[in-house]
Each structure stands twice: as C-alpha cells, then as structure tokens.
C-alpha cells in the first residue's frame, strides 16, 4: 500500500542500465518518483545510488565512457530522447552535491544568482527579489541578509550547503536531486537541512541519496535500497524500515553489512 497514492508521478524509470566504460553500475532499475515527496536512495558505497540520481539530470553522461540504456520519463517525456537538450533539462532538475560547492569567486548574492547569470537569464529588476526569496526558501535569509556581498566561502559548511540549495532554487526547478547533502556537515547543520527538506517537499519533488538510514527514515516518504547496481526493494519508507520483504534489505537496515 502506498502512503500518498494521489501524488502524481514525476519520474518514471524503466529498465535503466548504466555503465562506466565496461563497468556495469546500474542493472535494470525500475522506479517511480512522485511529486511533492521525498524519495530516499540508500545502499552501501559503490552500489550505484549516486549514478542513479545522476542519470535523472543527465550528469552521468558527462563522464568520458559513461553510457545509459533504458528509459526515464519526466512528466511523460523521455529525457533521453535525442531532441531533449540536457542543458535545459538540468534547469528543471536541480542538483545539490555532497560537498558544499559555492563558487569561490562570487559573493553570497552572486552565488544565488549564479544559475541565472551563467545561463544569461538574469533580469536586473527582479534580481533582489529572486535573491531574497531563494534564500528564504533555503532558510538562510535571516543569517546572511546583512552580508550578501561577502564571499560565499566565508560561510560555515552548513550555511554553504543551504546557499547551494538557494542557488538551485533560484533557477526554479521542479525536481531537486541531492547527493548525500549532509555527509560533510555536523549534526546541527544536518538537522537544519532535514527541516528544510520537510518544507521544500510541499513544492518540489525531492530525491535524496544518503548513506544514513536514520536520515532516510526521518526525511523520506519512500525509500529505495540499492545493492550492486540493482534496486533491491522500493516502497513506503515506514514499511521498508519496519517490514522489509527482501532478506538483503533487512540485513542492511539492521546493520549486518554496509
């Protein structure tokens, strides 16, 4: 039984396979990612979870020798069709990375606007309101509103990560991918990001890769467990953590390996 069956599907992943040269990293993955939900991807290191979300915004193919087969539909459209421009796709599917990576040559304000400026879509008359609204949505506004012209690198790690989230939100995506966004942060900063996820999922579809099962159980509505490139089990987070159907899932979440 799905918890929120009324939420419409965003990503429909069918028979997804991915390779790095000869190395087969994803094997026949099927998954359905819904709107206004947090979908967590868990699994041990090297199980293909990062590769999986990097297929969703076509970042995987940037690595030389990387290959993808199968289909991923976003709102009914196959994003691997030849007429889909990955550059435009990435404006709809934002991504937050493992290590906070604000642009060091830019101020806080410039970092928030960087997506728009990079792509030549910055409208000066609305810039201030874009900065404020993105920073507010990333729960960072109150901390930086007086220091917008300081370098982005001057913030703490957790603030930098929220700045990166603000930067992603400013481009106005509808899906946000997060690749272990808290793994470089302390517990307090992690808690703030997790709180933020709860608010953000009201407006976005969020996919988060995490190595922490506690985090997955705290923040997500659905969870997928990957092992050696296969999606072993996928379903409601409550069920995955209380009554997994696959033996391997149970072993992993009870800490028998990983």
């Amino acid at each position: 039984m799905l918890k929120n069956p009324e939420n419409s599907p965003r990503f429909v992943v069918t028979q997804l396979n991915a390779w790095f040269s000869a190395h087969h990293v994803l094997r026949s993955v099927d998954m359905l990612i819904r709107d206004r939900e947090v979908t967590a991807i868990i699994g041990p290191s090297g199980c293909g979870k990062s590769t999986f979300i990097r297929c969703l915004n076509r970042m995987h193919e940037l690595v030389p020798g990387a290959k993808v087969a199968g289909s991923i539909q976003l709102d009914g459209e196959d994003i691997y069709q030849s007429d889909v421009d990955p550059v435009l796709l990435r404006r709809h599917v934002g991504m937050v990375f493992q290590k906070p990576n604000p642009f060091p040559t830019m101020t806080i304000r410039e970092n928030v606007l960087s997506g728009l400026r990079l792509t030549g879509r910055l409208d000066r008359s609305t810039a201030n309101s874009v900065v404020e609204s993105a920073l507010r949505r990333a729960a960072l506004w109150d901390e930086v509103k007086d220091t917008l012209d300081k370098p982005g690198g001057s913030l703490s790690g957790g603030q930098q990560q929220r700045l990166c989230i603000a930067r992603t939100l400013a481009v106005d995506p509808s899906v946000i991918l997060m690749d272990e966004p808290c793994s470089a942060l302390d517990p307090v900063a992690t808690a703030r990001i997790e709180d933020l996820l709860h608010t953000l999922k009201a407006s976005y579809s969020i996919v988060i890769v995490t190595h922490s099962m506690q985090q997955a159980s705290r923040v997500s509505d659905r969870t997928g467990f990957f092992l050696s490139g296969e999606l072993i089990e996928f379903g409601d987070t409550d069920r995955i953590f209380t009554a997994p159907t696959d033996r391997r899932t149970e072993d992993y979440i009870t800490g028998k390996f990983g």
């Binding site: 915004n57 970042m59 940037l62 550059v87 435009l88 990435r90 404006r91 934002g94 991504m95 990375f97 290590k99 990576n101 642009f103 060091p104 040559t105 960087s114 997506g115 400026r117 990079l118 792509t119 030549g120 990166c164 930067r167 992603t168 481009v171």
Partner: peptide, 27 residues
C-alpha cells in the same frame, strides 16, 4: 579548477561554454 565547481555550473543548466567562461576561466 575543482571538478565540483564545474559540476555545480552544469547542474544549474549552464552550457559547457557558459561554465568555462564564467566559472572556470575566472578561477
């Protein structure tokens, strides 16, 4: 220039040229 910054630019929907011109070159 760190790969993480290149990826950040591309993930924001920048083309390769925009990434080089506005992120990589200044650094």
């Amino acid at each position: 220039v760190p790969k993480t910054l290149r990826e950040a630019a591309l993930a924001l929907g920048a083309t390769r040229w925009q990434m080089v011109w506005r992120v990589v070159l200044p650094m």
